[in-house]
Computed example of a mutant assay.
Amino acid sequence: MENMRRRFVLNLIAYAALRDVPAIQLCRLAGIDLPALQGTGDYIINNQQLNNLWREASTLADDTMFGLHFGESLQLSALGIVGEIIRTSKTVGEAVEQAAALSHLLTDLFRVIVERKESHFIIRFLPLTERTDMFVFRQTIELFMVFVVHELDGLLLRKVKPEAVQLPYRVEQEAEYTRVFRCNIEKSTDDYALVFDNRYWSESLLSANYEIQRTLLQKVAAHNSTEGDSLREKIHQYLLTNAYLGIRSLSEIAANFNVSPRTLQRKLKEEGINYQDVADEVRKSLAIHYLEEGGYAVKTISYMLGYNELSAFTRAFKRWTGKTPVSYQKN
């Protein structure tokens, strides 16, 4: 469990850094030894340090929905955790059941069970401990609920929409919860649950595409730019880390960074660039990486980069490099 917790904490710190939170300051306030955490030894994060980390990250980022937004950004990081499940499961149902059985490796705050009904299946998050710190509990459980929704995207390589999301409290910024979860939030008596249509249950996993996702992981690791100070660099890293189902829109990025689209564009303009330029930088970088490293079909690469038509990808790539994707790949 400590290994998984260490990985989780590192991901949280990296995401906070993208949100302009200084990693050194965050760890100092949380009582965490950052060099020891990043080292090769068995540095243990206790519950109090983890609770402190949640609180300080949310405060420094000025975001009461920090857990919600962190969960939205965990898509690629999740591949490292569920990679074995992807390789050993044939269907979404099998993967969901295996993931639920392993949930204790990630948290001791709740357990996950899966219930199959006639028309839908429900993933329930059942609290295990007394919730003495409701703020931290809520941040954590919302993170994992969002994480599940977005990880299903990775299993099927398309955006999955729940039928319902049930929480035992009313959310203040309902529009943002609806955007992240892709459906309306239902207030329940005491349930934390995700409800999905049964049509997803028996769908075959696109495990053949796991290799192209691994290629993306390698690209992200090589980039390693979370320490960049500029907003341009932070957005570039975020787009890169969440790029296996296309490039996020300006409004989606702004919402995750907890600012308005106009504010985000203004800050980028101050750095001499606009959002579309950053997005194209990421698309170009990934397109070249996929063509050089993977031997993947050009049509697959086009889809992974979010292009609806192969012709649109071909025109863009020729504008970037002077060559078509096919000719570039052959050379």
Rank of each mutant, 00 (worst) to 15 (best):
G41W: 06
A17I: 01
R28S: 15
F66C: 00
L50P: 06
S58W: 01
A61H: 08
L37N: 00
T64E: 14
N52H: 08
G41V: 08
F8M: 12
P22S: 01
L50W: 09
F8E: 14
D63T: 09
Q25D: 14
L29F: 00
Q25S: 14
A23W: 06
Q49W: 05
N52E: 09
A14T: 04
N46T: 07
I44D: 06
V21L: 02
L34P: 00
L37W: 00
G39S: 14
D62L: 04
A14M: 11
N51K: 11
D62Q: 12
A36F: 02
V9L: 07
Q48L: 13
I32K: 06
T64W: 12
L37I: 07
A36L: 11
M65G: 14
L37E: 03
I45A: 10
N52G: 13
A30H: 02
I32H: 00
G39L: 04
N52Y: 13
L29R: 06
T40R: 09
N11F: 09
Y43A: 05
D20L: 04
I32G: 00
I32V: 06
Q48E: 13
L60N: 01
G31F: 07
G31I: 04
L10G: 08
R28G: 07
N47W: 08
G39F: 03
L26Y: 04
N46F: 08
M65E: 14
D42T: 10
S58N: 03
N46D: 14
G41H: 15
N51C: 11
D20S: 13
D20G: 08
G41N: 10
I24W: 12
R28M: 02
D33S: 06
R55Y: 13
D20P: 10
Q25K: 14
Q25I: 10
